[in-house]
């Protein structure tokens, strides 16, 4: 249909102005698609670069000896079975403390941020009077603009004594503190996306529900929230991605001790903070250097798998919702 149209327009009797306009259209379209492909190309190049640097770990004999997969994931002999001490006479490169630390911190932050983000979005979208909504929304979104190093410093200086006394912990820097500080960073992410999803639910849903005699709360909880479920799920995934990759807050607030402990009052060392802390002075090309890139690959795989799972799940939820409606 469109092709036919352009063919008609592209008849030989075309004025100079029209031809120029057509040329400009083409140039703009070309420019835009170039931009789009630059983004994709950058992403691919980053993946290739990171993977290439990490690959040395498996090809170089020296690195293979120093940091084999067994050394990374299986318990080692010695006083402590799992250690991350890459700068040592005999480097110890177990990833287990890093996994435990990352998951511990992410878990705490999600436990706090998911309910907080979703409920504040629900309040703003469904219950708040218009004036209050227009005040609340930009303020919460402003929270996303705070640089993470500032949040980290805030956690280190202000939050740490409070959290320590509140939970009666031995150490001021620990997984709980890092998780709470991290929650401050991801609440706005979850809030913004959830709020968009909630306001995108058609008005007719609410009107139908209210007309059937449901209260405001019943409408919000049983009709609007399920209808917005895919968007809210996407919000949580985005928040999780931000939490697992967040660096500065965790580096400042978690204490970074490489212990294997699920106790939330203990310190924790995360994957991303390890890269940030050690990349600065590492000898380029050394096994330690490749190891840090390998951590980067792991982080990438985590978020990639999570995104995949979440998108298939979202599809399922959507199917169920539309299926039950028809």
């Amino acid at each position: 249909m469109e092709q036919g149209l352009t063919r008609v327009v592209a008849a030989p009797r075309l004025s100079a102005a029209a031809r120029r306009r057509q040329l400009r259209e083409k140039a703009v379209a070309g420019f835009i698609s170039l931009m789009a492909f630059t983004g994709i190309a950058a992403l691919i190049l980053i993946i290739v670069f990171v993977a290439k640097e990490a690959l040395t770990l498996f090809t170089d004999a020296d690195a293979r000896h120093e940091a084999s997969l067994a050394k990374m994931f299986l318990p080692q002999e010695g006083r402590y079975p799992f250690r991350w001490q890459p700068v040592s006479d005999t480097p110890k490169v177990s990833m287990i403390p890093l996994f435990v630390g990352t998951l511990k911190i992410t878990l705490v932050s999600m436990l706090v941020a998911v309910p907080m983000g979703i409920f504040s979005a629900l309040f703003v979208a469904e219950f708040a009077p218009r004036r209050l909504r227009e005040l609340l929304k930009p303020i919460i979104e402003l929270l996303a603009g705070i640089p993470s190093v500032v949040l980290g410093f805030f956690a280190l200086m202000v939050l740490s004594p409070v959290v320590k006394d509140l939970f009666h912990l031995d150490r001021p820097l620990n997984g709980t503190l890092a998780g709470l500080a991290l929650a401050l960073a991801i609440v706005p992410v979850i809030f913004t996306v959830s709020e968009d999803a909630l306001t995108a639910v058609p008005r007719s849903y609410r009107e139908a529900s209210l007309a059937l005699g449901a209260t405001l709360w019943e409408t919000a909880w049983k009709v609007v929230l399920p209808a917005a479920a895919p968007g809210i799920l996407a919000a949580c995934v985005l928040g999780f991605g931000r939490a697992i990759g967040e660096t500065m807050i965790v580096l400042m607030a978690s204490g970074n001790a490489d212990i294997v402990s699920w106790n939330l009052g203990d310190s924790a060392r995360s994957l991303s903070a390890t890269i940030a802390a050690e990349m600065g002075e590492v000898v380029v090309g050394s096994p330690h250097y490749s190891l840090l890139f390998f951590i980067g690959v792991e982080l990438f795989i985590f978020t990639f798998v999570l995104n995949m799972v979440a998108s298939t799940w979202t599809k399922k939820v959507l199917q169920r919702l539309t299926g039950s409606a028809s």
Partner: peptide, 27 residues
Amino acid sequence: GEDFAPTIQTLPGTAAVVNAVSKEKNS
């Protein structure tokens, strides 16, 4: 030349260490 114990917490920079020590009386 021995390894630090796993319970030892690490911080980026002398300033962060000084801040943390000034906040915690057993540090």
